[in-house]
Design a protein around this nucleic acid. Structure first.
Length: 485
RNA sequence: CGGGGCGUAGCGCAGCCUGGUAGCGCGUCUGCCUUGGGCGCAGAAGGCCGGCGGUUCGAAUCCGCCCGCCCCGACCA
């Protein structure tokens, strides 16, 4: 059956997620390459929108794009002890090239701190060379045991920012600034509310001093780490001998940061807004905001209506709306409605003989399904206003869901009771706010519940200090505990 | 990497247990009819039955190995 091939969320959330991606024609498993995906045009167009929103903000904060090799000498990874330990299990290594066994093997980059560290050492001599603010758009390879389209694939697309600074304070500000950029894009462009926080020592990036993340909540209540920003301290500076002479004439190692978001964001986007009919894209992120669908009964109507549809599209375009006319022949209007609905286009504009007579168009919004007849003359203004309202309302609904599913717990037993029944397929996930010490031993206790400490929020919206639910020591604030992707 | 499921036409699946001419729905193509939520009727095309090997007169079907996908675990953006 070609009808209704999307499994309802209530039946099996994980199956629903796969179905939405397939029906929206966003991506498919690479089939012949383990764990990899083919990002199809509609999925890639969404990535390009994410890229554009981020890139604009990176440039506005003084960063420049550059590109480094994807092959990294294996020895580079080993220079930072914690880094190699963290990444070794998931490396893919090139051992033969040009028909000969390589003297030194190359790893396919899992992340670029090491090779960029090597070049930073060449580029930086003086405090005048700092700060150095670089971003790279690239693909990376991490050999994960288990993959899911967009959320965790063997190869994925991302950006990685790498910066070097003269002082620890400046590096800290940079890491925090970029976390804010990520939160801005997540919330105001993607309409996906996030919690900004600090990772625990256990969860931080391998080789970092501190890691920050933005954590989003999916419709099943599971957490998704949507972006990370790290203070690397002088760890990579020491490992790669990135030294500079400061204004007092003394040599010092640079203070570095790195930060990244990936195609995983697309997975987050899908699981934030989409419904049982398919993908739902927020107006600020969609490659196409509106589609005009001409409806005609006889061939004699056809020309007049298609012409009028193009006029309507031109009016929308002039009002600043990204719009297309679906004037494909051989498809019924019903067919076209479903086509665009599954692909998440925010607004469809229907134009048939009845509307032509009455001088109106019928505007339908994807998120709520609401329909409204609007005078043709005022359609441009109406749709721009509608798109703006939709963006706001989609974010508000997602934020309300996050709020409704965030709960307070005051004992380990409570946390267990809340999170034990939660699963990706059944849903029921919560963000559980509890006092917990930042200590590998307490993290391990949470892990036994198949949950993790997602972050220690940067702004405490709860009751300040309290007793750790594991160690009973007093800790400064509650942390977010959840099951996660 | 352990446990489970699956791989047959572009897509979704049946057939396999009990070996004997490869089927159904959707889509595609042609024609007619239609077009306000996946129109209808008639006709047609389309297959290394995931791969390799074995058993057999004969394998989609039985056996072994391999590959891939999905789900559940352990590990992670």
């Amino acid at each position: 059956m070609s009808k209704n091939r999307i499994t309802p969320r209530s039946e099996d959330f994980a199956a629903w997620y796969q179905d939405v991606i397939a029906q929206a024609d966003m991506a498919e498993p690479a089939e012949v390459v383990k764990g990899c995906m083919v990002i199809k045009p509609h999925g890639y167009a969404v990535w390009e929108k994410i890229q554009a929103a981020l890139d604009k903000r990176f440039k506005a904060t003084g960063h420049k794009n550059a590109y480094f090799p994807m092959l990294i000498p294996e020895s580079f990874l080993k220079r930072e002890a914690e880094h190699v330990e963290g990444f070794s299990p998931e490396l893919a290594v090139v051992t033969i090239a040009g028909g000969e066994e390589l003297e030194e093997r190359y790893v396919l980059r899992p992340t670029s701190e090491t090779i960029i560290g090597h070049f930073f050492a060449k580029w930086i001599q003086s405090w005048r060379d700092l700060p150095l603010l670089i971003n790279q758009w690239a693909n990376v390879i991490r050999w994960e045991k288990r993959t899911r389209l967009f959320l965790r694939t063997t190869e994925f697309l991302w950006q990685e920012g790498h910066t070097a600074h003269a002082t620890e304070e400046e590096a800290r500000q940079e890491a925090r600034r970029m976390l804010e950029v990520y939160a801005d894009v997540a919330e105001n462009v993607m309409g996906m509310p996030v919690v900004k926080g600090l990772k625990t020592r256990t969860e931080k990036f391998a080789g970092a001093e501190k890691s920050y993340s933005i954590e989003a909540m999916m419709q099943n209540g599971l957490a998704l780490q949507a972006g990370t920003s790290h203070e690397l301290g002088q760890n990579f500076g020491r490992a790669f001998d990135v030294k500079f002479q400061n204004q007092a004439g003394q040599l010092d190692y640079v203070w570095q940061t790195s930060w990244g978001v990936s195609t995983r964001l697309i997975g987050g986007l899908i699981m934030t807004h989409s419904d049982d009919k398919g993908l739902v894209l927020p107006p600020n992120l969609t490659p196409l905001q509106a589609v005009v669908i001409p409806i005609y009964r006889k061939d004699t109507d056809r020309e007049a209506i298609v012409n009028r549809a193009h006029q309507a599209a031109a009016a929308l375009h002039n009002a600043g709306v990204t719009v297309e006319v679906d004037d494909r022949e051989g498809f019924t209007p019903g067919n076209k409605f479903f086509h665009w609905e599954q692909r998440g286009i925010p607004v469809t504009v229907e134009l048939g003989p009845r509307d032509l007579e009455q001088g109106v168009v019928v505007v339908k919004r994807r998120d709520t399904g609401g329909k409204e007849a609007v005078a043709q003359d005022s359609a441009g203004g109406y749709v721009t206003g509608l798109l703006e309202r939709m963006q706001g309302e989609m974010f508000a609904r997602a934020r309300q869901r996050l709020k409704d599913n965030t709960v307070v717990a005051n004992s380990f037993e409570e946390v267990r009771e809340i999170l034990e029944p939660v699963s990706a397929e059944r849903g029921g996930g919560k963000f559980v706010m509890a006092h917990l010490k930042d200590d590998p031993a307490t993290d391990a206790k949470i892990k036994a519940l198949k949950a993790t400490v997602r972050c220690i929020p940067l702004t405490d919206e709860y009751d300040g200090p309290g007793k750790c639910i594991v160690t009973v020591e007093t800790v400064p604030q509650r942390v977010v505990i959840a099951k996660a992707y």
